[in-house]
Amino acid sequence: MVYRSETFRELDSKLRDIPEFEEVPLKRFRHKRAFRFYGTLCEITLVQGGEGPVTLFWGDAPFLWDTPLLHGALVEVEKEPISVVSASNLKRYRDLHRDRQPHRWREPQALEAYE
């Protein structure tokens, strides 16, 4: 999933209020949050605005998304309309994900502290 905002502050606050929410602390980074919801692992990538959609891996390694970020039409899931990342963005993200300094996943200083 992607989350369009400048920070995770508001999302973090709302998720803590959900009883079924169980954060995965070892995946709490400046650019990502992970949690289990009813046993399913979910990951959310922060996409910031500015001059174009960008994710700052580790807060300092930019990944520039193509525009438009989202698929043009809403997709219906269990009769609920949702937005989805465009196919070209998903492919590009997957293709380039390993270029985003993967060694930093294991560095304790890369983890973001709780507020």
Rank of each mutant, 00 (worst) to 15 (best):
L64K: 14
A87D: 12
W65T: 07
T55G: 01
E80Q: 11
W65C: 06
R36V: 04
L56H: 11
G39N: 02
E51H: 05
S83D: 13
P62H: 05
W58F: 06
N89I: 04
Q48Y: 00
P53V: 12
V85C: 06
P62V: 09
Q48S: 10
F37H: 11
G49T: 06
T40E: 10
F37W: 14
L70Y: 15
I82M: 08
A61S: 10
E76H: 08
L64I: 12
V75S: 08
P53F: 07
V47A: 04
V85K: 01
P53I: 09
W58K: 10
T45I: 14
A73H: 11
G72N: 01
V77M: 05
A61C: 09
T67N: 03
A61P: 00
T55S: 15
G50I: 13
L41D: 13
K79N: 12
N89S: 08
F57A: 10
S86E: 03
T45Y: 15
A73G: 02
L74I: 03
Y38N: 07
L70W: 15
V54S: 04
A73W: 04
T45H: 12
L70Q: 10
C42Y: 06
E51G: 12
T55E: 00
E51S: 12
A61V: 15
T67C: 01
K79D: 04
P53C: 05
W65L: 05
F35G: 02
G50F: 10
A73L: 11
H71I: 01
H71V: 02
V77D: 08
W65N: 05
G52V: 04
